[in-house]
Design a protein around this nucleic acid. Structure first.
Lengths: 339, 339
DNA sequence: AAAATAGGCACAAACGTTTGAGCAAATCAG
DNA sequence: CTGATTTGCTCAAACGTTTGTGCCTATTTT
C-alpha cells in the first residue's frame, strides 16, 4: 500500500522536492525548469505511479477537492437519489463527495458539519434538520461556500434549491375538487420543516380560495416514527360522520404508502369511498391495487442544481445568494376516480 | 472557520506543544505531567473548543478514523440501506464512513479505492463490480483490512458477508411447485455477478431435483439498462405455446417490479395466468394489485456484520478470513394463488 | 555527601506537501 | 571586460500534529 513520495523522487533523481512539485503541478515553465529536467521528472513520476498525498496537500493549501453533503438519512430514497446526482455532478468537476446522515438530530448535524470542516471540505450542501440555525448562521457569516437543499431557514439568507411546494399542493387540491371532492383531509408529519409547513399552508389557502371549508379534524399530523396503528387511527377519525372526509392528501410519498396500507386493511375502497393523492412520487405507485395519483418532482435535478450553485459560490465567495425552486408535475392515475 | 491549534495553545500557555498533545491524548499521567499543568491545558482546550486537526494527525499516524465503503450505486435502495447501517454501526465505534459509487464500472472502482487509500482510510468495505480482481488481490496481499459484501471473487479468499442465495431460490422454486406450477421461468440480469449466478444455478438444480425440466427459453437475461419493451418481449417469449411458462421467478426486486408492470400492461392475470415471485423485497410489494410473494433478507444486518468483521480485521491484521451468509425469508402473499 | 532515581517538561524530527525567496552559473548588453 | 539579466534550480519555512529522546531540578537512596 506504500506509495512513492516527493522525497523519494527527489533523492532518486537528485533534484529538489520543490522542483518536482512545481513540475508536477504544471508550473515547470513558469518556474523556468529546463525541458530536460521536466521530462525526466514526469517520466519518473508516471513510471512510479506517483500520486500526491491529498492529506499533506490539503493540510497546506487548505483545500481538499471534496464537497460535503449533510443529509437526514441516506436510506431515504429521496435523499439517496439526490446523493447520487450530487456525486455524479461533482465528479464531473473533479470533486469528491463525502456525506453524512444526521437522523434529523441536531447534535449529529453539528458533528457532521464540524467533521467536514475539519477535513477541509471546499463547500457544503446541507439538507438540514432545521434545528441547527447556529451552524448555518456561522457558515454564512464566515462566507463558507454552502447551499441548502429541501430544508431552509426562513431567517437566514442562503443559497437554496428546493421545490415549488405551493404549486404542487395547489394542483393536488384542485384535482381532488375537480373530481368532485370538497371535503379533503390533509395528513402530514409533525415536524417543523418549512417544506411541510408550506405544503400545509398551501392546502389551507387553496381550499379557501375554492370555497372549501377546512373543518376541524381535516388536518392530521403523525409522528416521524408513527406505527400502522397511528395511521389507521387518524384515518378512522377523518372518516367519522362528523368529519366525513372524501379525499386525502398525503404530504409525503411515504405517508401515502402507509396510508394506502391502512385503507386496504380497513377495507375502505379507493377511490369510491376515499380519493387519495400523494405529494411525492414513489417508483411503484403505478403498480398499486389502485394506481396512485401523485405529484412528482425532479429529484436528481435538485442535486445537480445544488452542485452548480455551490461551484459558483466556491469560485466567488461573495456571490449573490441564489434560490431555485423546481416545479412539480401532477401524474394522474386512478386513485381519485376516472374523468 | 478558524480553529485553534496546538501551537496557539502552546504560546498562550507557555507550555510546549508536546506536553499539550500528551495531555489532550490522555497520556498526561504516563508522561508525568503535573496535575496543575494538565488541568490548565484541559481547561484552556475546552474553553477554546480545541479540536485536533484530523488531517495533520492522519498524516503522521497513518490512520484516519474513517472506513471507506465502495458500492455500485447509492441510489439503489438495497445499497442505500446498507450504507445507512454501516454508517450507524461505524459511528458507534467512533468511525466515520466515506463512500463512493462506482456505477459497476471498473475504472471508477479503481479510482474510488485508490482515493480512499490516499485518504488513509483504516479499512474498506467493498461491494465490488466483480471486474476489479487486481485491486482486491492487491489489498488482500497487503493485508489491508477489508470485507467484501454481496459480490465476491471466487478465486480470492477474503472476508465476505452475503446472502444464502441457494436457500432463497430453493424456497421460491419449491413454493411455486407446491402451488402447482411445474413450468417455471427465471428472469435475471445479464451481469456476471456471483450472486446472480448462484441464484441461477440454484434455480436449475432445484428444478431438476424436483423433476421439473428446464426447457430452452425458461431462462431469460436482461441487460442492466433494459427497457419496459425488453421485459415485455421476454415475457411474451416465455408465454409462447412452445414454452408455456406458468410461473416466473425474478432474480431481483427491481426486475420483479418491472415484470409486474409488463404483465399488467399485457393484461396477463396474476396469479391465474402467471404466478410470480421475487427474489428480493421492496417496501410496497404488499400494496400491489396482487400482493407479491417474495424472498426478503436482512439488509441492514449485512452492513452491520460487515462492520463487525472489518473492525476485527483492523484489530488483527492476520485474522482468519471470515465468511458470513444471511438466511432469507419467504414472504407468501397472493401472487402464486392461495393455499 | 555522592549517586541514583523520579518528576516535569521541552526539543526536534517526522508525515508529505506547497511556495516565496534566494543563489550560482550562464548569457547578454554596453 | 564589467555589470546586468536570465536560466535553472535549491533552501527552508509552513501546515498541525505525534512521539522518542533528553535535559534540568528535586527528591530519595546508600
Amino acid at each position: 500500500m506504500k506509495t512513492i513520495s516527493l522525497q523519494e523522487i527527489s533523492t532518486a533523481l537528485k533534484v529538489s522536492k520543490s522542483t518536482i512539485s512545481y513540475v508536477l503541478n504544471g508550473r515547470g515553465d513558469e518556474k523556468r525548469i529546463s525541458i530536460n529536467t521536466q521530462q525526466m521528472i514526469e517520466e519518473y513520476a508516471k513510471a512510479h505511479n506517483y500520486k500526491p498525498n491529498p492529506l499533506a496537500r490539503s493540510l497546506i493549501v487548505g483545500k481538499s477537492n471534496m464537497i460535503g453533503f449533510v443529509l437526514p438519512n441516506i436510506a431515504d430514497f429521496f435523499f439517496a437519489r439526490i446523493t447520487r446526482s450530487i456525486e455524479k455532478k461533482a465528479m464531473q468537476s473533479g470533486y469528491e463527495v463525502v456525506f453524512s446522515s444526521t437522523g434529523e438530530d441536531k447534535e449529529r448535524e453539528e458533528k457532521s458539519i464540524q467533521s467536514m470542516l475539519d477535513r477541509n471540505v471546499d463547500g457544503l450542501i446541507i439538507a438540514s434538520s432545521q434545528k441547527n440555525e447556529k451552524d448555518i448562521l456561522r457558515l454564512t457569516q464566515n462566507k463558507f461556500p454552502m447551499v441548502l437543499i429541501d430544508r431552509k431557514y426562513p431567517d437566514i439568507s442562503t443559497n437554496f434549491v428546493g421545490l415549488n411546494n405551493i404549486g404542487g399542493i395547489t394542483m393536488l387540491v384542485e384535482h381532488l375538487i375537480n373530481m368532485g371532492r370538497k371535503k379533503i383531509g390533509f395528513v402530514s408529519l409533525n415536524m417543523d420543516l418549512l417544506t411541510l409547513n408550506e405544503r400545509l399552508n398551501s392546502y389551507e389557502e387553496t381550499m379557501k380560495r375554492n370555497g372549501c371549508e377546512v373543518k376541524k379534524g381535516f388536518i392530521q399530523q403523525l409522528e416521524y416514527n408513527h406505527t400502522d396503528n397511528d395511521m389507521e387511527r387518524i384515518i378512522k377519525i377523518m372518516l367519522s360522520k362528523s368529519i366525513g372526509v372524501e379525499g386525502l392528501i398525503f404530504s409525503t410519498q411515504f405517508l401515502a404508502a402507509d396510508g394506502i396500507r391502512a385503507l386496504n386493511k380497513m377495507n375502505i375502497k379507493v377511490p369510491t369511498d376515499m380519493a387519495v393523492v400523494s405529494y411525492g412520487h414513489k417508483n411503484d405507485f403505478d403498480l398499486f391495487k389502485v394506481p396512485l395519483t401523485a405529484i412528482d418532482f425532479p429529484v436528481e435535478e435538485i442535486g445537480e442544481k445544488a452542485v452548480d450553485i455551490l461551484l459558483e459560490n466556491m469560485k466567488d465567495i461573495n456571490m449573490k445568494k441564489e434560490e431555485f425552486y423546481f416545479n412539480t408535475e401532477l401524474i394522474v392515475r386512478e386513485s381519485c376516480g376516472s374523468h
